[in-house]
């Protein structure tokens, strides 16, 4: 069995605005294995980014709060660390890159400055050594003429190059985990593939694990070992990528797969071709959160929340109907309704 390096257990995150409490993440659990990548998918607002930023404890402290759970990294619960200890984790053991490289780099400092300060925040290097390391990093992520580029400002780079710079910054201290929150969404289609290839290369070269948040299931098939399907702040299905691909269990996942097929032309398309919209997270949800949109919903779905169960080893799903006959029935219906899901 592969060894897990990060364990998120029953994570709960709430946003508070006045008297309204939004449960953005509601009991998310997953394990990230060494040298493996996990993909997190789910439509907009399902809590992917909040889950990811909570791992680094970077959610806005004024409005959001982690109200429960554990995040275990190397035997330590990150939620119990002091701010100082947490700083040593950020950018050093776990790094993060964001969606839009044109806003995630600071416009008023050179890329060299932003790289070097990261290196020096965690490693005892002289300015000169850090600069040398920065040049190597830029080279590593495929930026030509790094000795010159290091003195340039972010606006002098193209979108793809900026994301490479972000990756260089994230990798500055050899983190074991890289969290990538839709790292290619803001880029041109041609550049997207280059960035993904780069990430894949580096992941193998540097022995790290990636948490890849994406709207694009293609990216998951391509890069990830595990997949986590999120809906309304919960995990509704999680599995090895092949298992989910061949045998998706949750009706929401079916919808996702289907929308991916019909809209595969445009990888920017949201995964929301499933009719209806997710529930308002500021209300208590009594039954299954997907009930309003689920074609197979029964009475029990309205009244009882389905638990995350593991019908087969390593493949978990939160839906009431998981016996073989029930599944068959529903799959058949799905084929009739949607012609084919996949063949």
């Amino acid at each position: 069995m592969s060894e897990s390096i990060l364990n998120v257990k029953n994570l709960q995150v709430e946003f508070k605005s006045g008297s309204i409490i939004t449960r953005a993440v509601n009991g998310v659990s997953f394990a990230l294995n060494k040298n493996e990548n996990i993909g997190i998918v789910g439509e907009s607002g399902s809590g992917k980014s909040v889950t990811a930023t909570s791992i680094l404890r970077l959610i806005p402290s004024s409005s959001a709060k982690i109200t429960g759970g554990e995040i275990i990294l190397n035997g330590r619960d990150l939620l119990k660390l002091s701010n100082r200890e947490m700083r040593k984790v950020r950018g050093n053991e776990i790094s993060m890159i964001f969606q839009d490289p044109s806003t995630s780099l600071n416009p008023v400092f050179t890329v060299g400055n932003q790289l070097i300060e990261t290196i020096r925040a965690h490693k005892k290097l002289t300015k000169k050594e850090a600069k040398q390391r920065a040049i190597e990093l830029l080279e590593l992520v495929g930026i030509p003429a790094p000795e010159k580029r290091i003195n340039m400002y972010p606006h002098e780079f193209s979108g793809g190059m900026r994301q490479r710079v972000m990756i260089a910054i994230a990798l500055a201290c050899d983190p074991k985990i890289l969290i990538a929150d839709e790292p290619t969404t803001a880029l041109d289609v041609t550049v997207q593939a280059q960035i993904l290839n780069l990430m894949k290369d580096l992941q193998e070269k540097l022995d790290m694990s990636i948490i890849m948040i994406t709207h694009d299931l293609g990216v998951v098939w391509e890069m990830c070992d595990q997949i986590l399907v999120m809906y309304a702040g919960r995990v509704v299905e999680s599995a090895k990528v092949e298992d989910l691909y061949h045998n998706p269990l949750h009706p929401y996942t079916w919808g996702l797969l289907e929308s991916q097929i019909t809209e595969s032309q445009d990888s920017h398309a949201p995964l929301a071709s499933i009719p209806g919209s997710p529930p308002d997270l500021s209300y208590e949800i009594k039954g299954c959160p997907f009930v309003d949109r689920c074609p197979y919903a029964q009475d029990i779905c309205h009244n009882e929340a389905p638990k995350l169960i593991e019908p087969t080893e390593g493949h978990a799903v939160a839906c009431h109907f998981q016996t073989e006959t029930e599944k068959l029935e529903r799959r058949e219906n799905a084929y009739i309704n949607g012609d084919t899901i996949r063949s």
């Binding site: 970077l58 984790v89 400092f109 990261t118 910054i169």
Partner: peptide
Amino acid sequence: HDYIKTARSKGLREFIVINKHALKN
């Protein structure tokens, strides 16, 4: 702004995040 989140995600001290990254902007 996003770059402030980036600065924090790199493990910089809050003092630097505020007085370098935010202030200059």
